[in-house]
Amino acid sequence: MAHTSSHGSAASILWGFLLSLVLTALAFGAVMAGAVPRGAVLPAITLLAVAQLIVQLVFFLHLGLGQGRRGNTAIFLLTAMLIGIVVSGSLWVMHNANHNMSPTQMTIAAARNRD
């Protein structure tokens, strides 16, 4: 590879584009064609999204472990950790709040009388 620079090469752009195209088509196909059993659709499209995020981070945003890339990669990984805490924490807390604080099996009067 004669020409590899901070902005990659034509080959790396084309690879990133083709991989993204295939992963996108698989995700839409899994939902639209019903090719995947219903219960497995959500894990499947989540996995495909994570794969495509990694492909674009490496091929388009040039994250990696090489010289001059480590700084950006470390900042990204810390941000990804914060995103994980914010998103999974919100879902967990709100799931518990819904579960414990919205009685659907009884009337409000019955819920009041229990204490």
Binding site: A27, A30, V31, M32, R38, L42, I45, T46, A49, L53
Partner: peptide, 13 residues
């Protein structure tokens, strides 16, 4: 990528 996966595709499952 996250929008089409978690808003549109997830919403259609």
């Amino acid at each position: 990528i996250c929008v089409f996966t978690f808003v549109y595709l997830r919403g259609a499952v």
